[in-house]
Amino acid sequence: MSDDPDLSTHDSSLPGVLGIIDSTISRIESFLLAAGVLLMALNTVSNVVGRFVFQSSLFFSEELNRILIILITFAGISYAARHGRHIRMSAIYDALPSTARKPLMVGIAFITAIFMFGLCYYSIGYIETQASRGRVLPALQIPVWITLVWVPVGFFMTGMQYTLTAIKNLTSRDIYLSTSVLEGYEETEQEI
């Protein structure tokens, strides 16, 4: 786990206003990732301190971690898509000639995007169902649906990233793993 220079840049490869929006979203995602992880550590340790020093557990500690892990996962999947970091098995793909790799990558990106948009749609439905039933978290007593709002957003942003990847591959000579990452990772330690 060396430094991640590829993660420190937020410069979008999209033109104009789109690029600014894209960079801003990327910044928000990375902030949420970091904040989620730090809050999780703080929350968990506070629970220990509360139990030992104040003889009183934080009843919401576990629920808060559940909320944070959803936030981290769904802010993270689109951030990972942006940086070409989703895990894949590329052995066969890599062995193909570039004339075959390009259409394959376009297909992969489009199909992945379709599934992400589909899951986005159904997760909105799931949230609506939760809201209509009025289920609350037992300790925090807040509605369950609120804890899930990041799910459709994450799926949507991931779908967008893969759509843009497909478009990028269709409009440029090189083959791209994501909007900002060129393929060809066997030589470097950076990519997955």
């Binding site: 991640d4 993660l7 990732l33 730090l38 981290i72 951030y79």
Partner: peptide, 19 residues
Amino acid sequence: DVYSTAKSTGLITAVVFIL
């Protein structure tokens, strides 16, 4: 550095947890 470490931790977590 702590901030960027937290970020990369979050990223790794997301990539594994979605699976």
